[in-house]
Design a protein around this nucleic acid. Structure first.
Lengths: 150, 150
DNA sequence: CCCCTAAGTTCCTTCAAGAGACTCCATGAC
DNA sequence: GTCATGGAGTCTCTTGAAGGAACTTAGGGG
């Protein structure tokens, strides 16, 4: 599909898309996070083509998001999140928040999060890492950084 | 590319992907947010095929993320974020945060955010909407919600 | 020895992305 | 009035990715 290589752009969004922007990749990540860690489990859960799943898993492993490791003497493998991959789950949580708000049918949210710290069913909110106040689209100015394109 | 229709899955991630999961869509959203609001501007900035850009813009308008409106007596149009689209920018901010941390080269972040509330160059952090404490992958339990698949 | 299972691999068809040429239409210049 | 201009698409053709299904491989169990 995307023959254009986003990874070379001077844009962190494009570079992130280069890692998880291919179709199915976020859902594969979700499955691993949710405990579907083996090839057959993920394939059955998503209904994805085996060929495409192989490509996606290899790419996520190459990018350091997942780790492939044996779980048996036989050639059996499971995929687990690396630290890099675990932090990428933040992205999924924001997707869930937005999808729950804007796209959930009358049935309501299909999945809920209980927050360990407070024990409540909740969702994520974006805050400034510096001052802790809300930080959304309208709360910031955009400035070119050191890695900006010439 | 993705011939599979994610929109029907009982998963807010899949449904969100149905809106902005196609290649280029997040970058189109970024451009509109950054002030590239016209067809020619976006096409020139991204280097995207005109055909694909037409498809993406139409889809984003259909989904209520962008609004297409005339800015001249002549048939000239610009695209602006709706409220739904503005909240979707949260997703981009989290992608930027992750990309800056894990993928920026030695050149550093290509784009910086200055937070209005505190005036500092900062980035987003995920907090519990309920108690305000950090909320990441390991801080929650997953529970089936009312809209869960049978 | 044969079968089973997990984890891929191969092959074929269909459809989307990329690239570039072409159209349409209102205005401004001559 | 005619022509050039420029924004916003539309059309056409080629390449390659997604979907689907059959096939392969390697070890274990009966």
């Amino acid at each position: 599909m995307q023959r254009t290589n986003f990874g070379e752009m001077a844009c962190s969004i494009a570079r992130t898309l280069d890692v998880i922007g291919e179709p199915w990749s976020p859902l594969v990540l979700r499955d691993v996070y949710a405990g579907f860690t083996r090839f057959e489990q993920i394939q059955a859960d998503l209904g994805i083509s085996r060929k495409v799943l192989t490509e996606r898993l290899n790419h996520l492993v190459d990018q350091g998001v997942l780790e492939r490791r044996p779980y048996d003497q036989r050639p059996r493998f499971e995929y687990v999140l690396t630290e890099k991959g675990t932090e990428l789950v933040d992205l999924l949580m924001v997707m869930v928040r937005w999808g729950d708000k804007w796209l959930a049918g009358q049935a309501g949210a299909p999945l809920l999060y209980r927050h360990h710290a407070c024990g409540e069913i909740s969702s994520v909110d974006l805050r400034c890492a510096h001052c802790g106040e809300p930080m959304h689209a309208g709360d910031v100015d955009l400035l070119p950084g050191p890695g900006a394109a010439s």
